[in-house]
Design a protein around this nucleic acid. Structure first.
Lengths: 209, 209, 209, 209
DNA sequence: CATGAATGAGCATTCATTCAT
DNA sequence: TATGAATGAATGCTCATTCAT
């Protein structure tokens, strides 16, 4: 009897996470409006009523899910932010590679799509996503570019727009995959896109620039 | 009743277009699931039942709307495609400028957002959009890049990925505006983004590349 | 073609009344919480959704129903109020008789029971009933008693309490019928109660008072 | 553990009473349908499941509660019934005074309201209340009146209806307070009502009856 | 053709009841 | 005994769709 925690209690603590996990799949797959709580419950292996032990309403569950997705992304973000030193020429390829790797496997692309889709119906969530994820990423990148400009590595220009030049193609690539699938002729392979776009954005398309 | 072309008939011919036009606003604003046909009818100035004289179902109306949006974009696209000659160095700034102009005013950004949002629920529409818009734009751009590579203007690399490097930041800029609004600190001004990104993607970020 | 009003329209105008009428039965029979809108719809001969064309919510329908019941009672009340002249000795028997008659047939007793039952859940309705019905009846009666006191017909005392002495037994009789049915040994026959109580309250129980 | 009558057991014996007590408050406050067993449990200081150790269903608990309320009233009734002797002229004021006192403080008025409210949904309870309370009170009173008629104190008439003339105003006063509150202009003060109505019903309203 | 009242399937939500601990 | 997490039947409400006018 070393474990005094009853199984029921252990499950109770895990339930919200299990439910949010199931909900993430369902919301990403069907969008908020078309997601049926029955499906969420089924996927979470609980009854419909159980959802309401942990979340007040469907919207509430959606918010919790969106916030959880945020958290997941933020952790990944924090890791990358350690790579603060070094030259832009080293940093950009690495960052894009990492991003490509992160996007390739998990549910992140679907989440991004969902955020775009529901941003109209949940403007407050859009703001949170902006503040917690987008602004942070762009802000950090903008700082790096600024520093590189100060160091003479990067040429003059709005560092915020440079940041967009750096990440834009990766975002497009991810959305392309998510929206149109990978069987299109134009579907970019994310790893290769990361490598080549890093080159491109650093040195330019032109042969002799 | 000497007039055999009464207002009624003239309106009748215009009805489907009027309805689709109203529907576009409503679908863009609320998304497919949250759009109410009552709203569409009200905005089109007709009764709810009238919608069903021209469209079988809500989904049908949505498809017609999505296809119409497509057409609008395609026309704009065809114009740009006239600019077939010239060097990449001239073409890219011009194309991005035009894109920025087109995105700045009208309903296109909202439509793009809607397409992303509903692509999961309407994969066939996603495919149409892919084939009719995305593949065409990327295809044409890829051809241009390829030609420029052949002409020694652009260096070696996958021309399809280069195309993404060119348009990606503009897409990100548009989505940013659409999703987060323009009051964010990081919201890019599209015209400036077009100008600077054209520079960047052509010559690179680095001072001496 | 004298009647240009289409049948549909004619029904539309009648619908709210039909629905309220059906709702009255259902609410009186089951109370607010146990009343099923399906039942209301069925009894009104319409579909469930039709209710929502005319009433926002179940509560809304209930309020409308309660207000309608009020109106019905008020009309009866206004008639009685014509009997403004004459002595108390003539008035009281007549009023109680009328009340007994009105209570005997219709749905009024059930409505009174419902008002009592739901007054806790709908205090605003209770207030309306108080102001519109109860206060009016008691107020008018109190005035009559006051006038009769001034005229030396009625002896000293609080005229408001006298009013309660006059109507209280009738209310108890009605509630008794409504709650316990008329097969009880103690169930008062309302007509006889009216007659005898009028005697009693005017002259007293005692043989020689 | 020398004490074989631990607090647990003592509480155990009291549990049903505690639960019924809590239930009475909740049922009176919200009515049967709107009463939540969670609230009952919380107020009783037990878990929801505990209720089911002592009562099969919510309805069962309600019946027990209604029966308990009955008992409370019956005890009060039995006391009054001792006052069996004396003249009607002495008895009536005393009885009404006592009734006014009993109604003034406790939960009795609320219980009366609840009985009226739920009599439709629980006709068997209505019957029990009728047999155990109403019929007894009216029966006893009818007997007293009958005896007084035999003794020449009360004049001719249906003694059952006389009984209603005696108690009706008190019932109306109690219900008025319960349903409309005491801040209405017409709200009768029960003590004064008892005094004046006793006078009125004994001697009549008229100056010279 | 046009209307909009009517329909009813579909889903979120509540809460009495159960049962593993 | 006592607990309270879990259940799922029941119901209010929405809105795409139909059809009598």
């Amino acid at each position: 009897m070393t474990d005094t925690t009853p199984k029921r209690r252990r499950r109770k603590d895990a339930r919200p996470a299990e439910i949010v996990n199931a909900a993430m799949d369902v919301f990403v797959e069907h969008g908020f409006a078309n997601a049926k709580l029955t499906d969420v419950a089924k996927r979470a292996g609980v009854a419909k009523g159980t959802l309401y032990l942990y979340f007040e309403t469907k919207e509430d569950l959606f918010r919790a899910t969106a916030r959880e997705a945020l958290t997941a992304n933020l952790e990944a973000l924090e890791q990358s932010s350690a790579a603060f030193n070094g030259s832009i020429a080293d940093l950009v390829p690495m960052l894009l590679k990492r991003a490509a790797g992160r996007m390739g496997d998990g549910r992140v692309p679907g989440i991004v799509r969902m955020v775009l889709a529901e941003s109209r119906a949940f403007p407050d969530l859009a703001r949170i996503w902006h503040d917690e994820v987008v602004a942070r990423i762009l802000g950090r990148l903008t700082e790096l570019v600024s520093a590189a400009q100060a160091g003479g590595e990067v040429r003059a220009g709005d560092p915020g727009l440079f940041a967009i030049s750096i990440v834009g193609p990766m975002v497009l690539g991810v959305l392309f995959q998510e929206v149109f699938g990978s069987d299109s002729q134009h579907a970019p392979e994310l790893g290769m896109l990361a490598t080549q776009h890093a080159e491109t954005v650093l040195h330019g398309l032109l042969v002799r620039s």
